[in-house]
Amino acid sequence: EETGVRVELAEEDDGEKIAIKLWLRIEDIKKLKGKYKDNEAIEFSFDLERDVPEDVAQEMVESGYVCEGDHKTMAKAIKDRVSLIKRK
């Protein structure tokens, strides 16, 4: 499903790190509610043992990086990427 958002690794995952750096990349602004630039990327750290995707997305909303209306879309994108990383 195309959401307009993609999360990718910002650094090589060696399988050892607990906290990883990720990029939340805006790919299609028409599919989102907030005002973003095409190909805008937000770099953030995610602790694989402690962080919760919904909470991280909420922090982005509170910091003004993400529109409240896009919270669920961002949280799902983060959750999907993190579950792929954890499965390795």
Rank of each mutant, 00 (worst) to 15 (best):
G4I: 11
G4T: 06
G4V: 04
G4E: 06
G4W: 01
V5C: 08
V5K: 04
V5P: 08
R6M: 06
R6H: 11
R6K: 10
V7A: 03
V7T: 05
V7N: 04
V7R: 00
V7E: 04
V7H: 02
E8F: 01
E8K: 07
L9H: 04
L9K: 00
L9V: 07
A10S: 08
E11P: 09
E12T: 12
E12L: 09
E12S: 10
E12Y: 08
E12I: 10
D13V: 08
D13N: 09
D13A: 09
D13Q: 11
D13L: 07
D14I: 11
D14T: 09
G15Y: 09
G15E: 09
G15I: 04
G15P: 10
E16M: 08
E16S: 11
E16A: 08
E16K: 10
K17S: 14
K17R: 10
K17Q: 13
K17L: 05
K17A: 14
K17N: 12
K17V: 04
I18L: 14
I18G: 15
A19S: 15
A19C: 15
A19P: 10
A19G: 10
A19N: 14
A19I: 15
I20F: 04
I20G: 08
I20S: 08
I20T: 10
I20K: 07
I20Y: 06
I20V: 14
K21M: 02
L22Q: 12
R25K: 13
R25M: 09
R25W: 08
R25T: 05
R25Q: 10
I26H: 12
I26F: 13
I26R: 12
I26C: 08
I26G: 12
E27M: 15
E27N: 14
E27K: 13
E27F: 12
D28V: 04
I29A: 15
I29Y: 15
I29P: 15
I29N: 15
I29C: 15
K30Y: 05
K30L: 06
K31N: 10
K31A: 07
K31S: 07
L32Y: 06
L32W: 04
L32I: 04
L32S: 07
L32H: 08
L32T: 05
K33R: 09
K33E: 10
K33M: 03
K33P: 06
K33W: 03
G34W: 04
G34P: 01
K35R: 10
K35P: 11
K35G: 06
K35L: 06
K35I: 10
Y36E: 05
Y36I: 04
Y36M: 07
K37I: 08
K37G: 08
D38Y: 10
D38M: 12
N39R: 11
N39H: 11
N39K: 14
E40C: 11
E40L: 12
E40N: 10
A41R: 14
I42M: 09
I42T: 06
I42Q: 01
I42C: 02
E43S: 12
E43I: 08
F44A: 05
F44S: 01
F44E: 01
F44Q: 09
F44H: 03
F44R: 02
S45K: 15
S45M: 15
S45G: 07
S45T: 15
S45D: 14
F46T: 00
F46C: 01
F46Q: 00
F46D: 01
F46E: 01
D47H: 05
D47M: 00
D47L: 03
D47Q: 00
D47K: 06
D47P: 03
D47S: 02
L48I: 12
L48Y: 02
L48N: 00
E49F: 04
E49N: 11
E49G: 07
E49R: 08
E49V: 06
R50Y: 08
R50S: 12
D51C: 01
D51I: 01
D51L: 03
D51A: 01
V52Q: 10
V52L: 10
V52K: 14
V52E: 12
V52R: 13
P53F: 00
P53V: 06
P53D: 01
E54G: 03
E54F: 02
E54H: 02
D55E: 13
D55H: 14
D55S: 11
V56R: 02
V56K: 12
V56H: 00
A57I: 13
A57E: 01
A57F: 00
A57P: 00
Q58A: 12
Q58M: 13
Q58C: 04
Q58G: 06
Q58W: 14
E59A: 12
E59P: 03
E59W: 12
E59K: 13
E59M: 12
M60Y: 01
M60Q: 00
M60K: 00
M60L: 15
M60W: 08
V61N: 00
V61M: 02
V61W: 02
E62Q: 12
E62N: 14
E62I: 09
S63H: 11
S63D: 09
S63G: 11
S63C: 12
S63R: 14
G64C: 01
G64H: 00
G64L: 01
G64D: 02
G64E: 03
Y65Q: 14
V66P: 02
V66K: 00
V66C: 06
V66D: 01
V66M: 05
C67A: 14
C67I: 03
C67W: 09
C67S: 11
E68K: 10
E68Y: 06
E68Q: 13
E68D: 09
G69E: 15
G69I: 12
D70F: 06
D70H: 06
D70P: 01
D70E: 05
D70A: 05
H71G: 10
H71Y: 13
H71Q: 12
H71V: 15
K72T: 12
K72M: 14
K72E: 15
K72Q: 14
K72W: 10
T73A: 13
T73V: 14
T73K: 14
T73N: 06
T73W: 11
T73D: 02
M74S: 01
M74V: 15
M74Y: 05
M74D: 00
M74G: 02
M74P: 04
A75Q: 00
A75P: 00
K76W: 02
K76F: 04
K76Q: 13
K76D: 10
K76V: 03
K76G: 05
A77L: 11
A77N: 03
A77D: 03
A77Y: 05
A77P: 02
A77R: 03
I78F: 01
I78G: 02
I78E: 01
K79N: 11
K79W: 07
K79Y: 11
K79S: 13
D80T: 05
D80S: 07
D80W: 01
D80I: 00
D80F: 05
D80K: 10
R81W: 07
R81L: 02
R81S: 08
R81F: 12
R81A: 12
R81K: 14
V82K: 00
V82L: 05
V82D: 04
S83E: 15
S83C: 08
S83M: 10
S83A: 13
S83R: 10
L84Q: 14
L84H: 11
L84I: 13
L84R: 14
I85K: 01
I85N: 02
I85Q: 03
I85L: 12
K86R: 10
K86L: 01
K86N: 09
R87H: 07
R87E: 08
R87S: 08
R87P: 03
R87F: 05
R87Q: 11
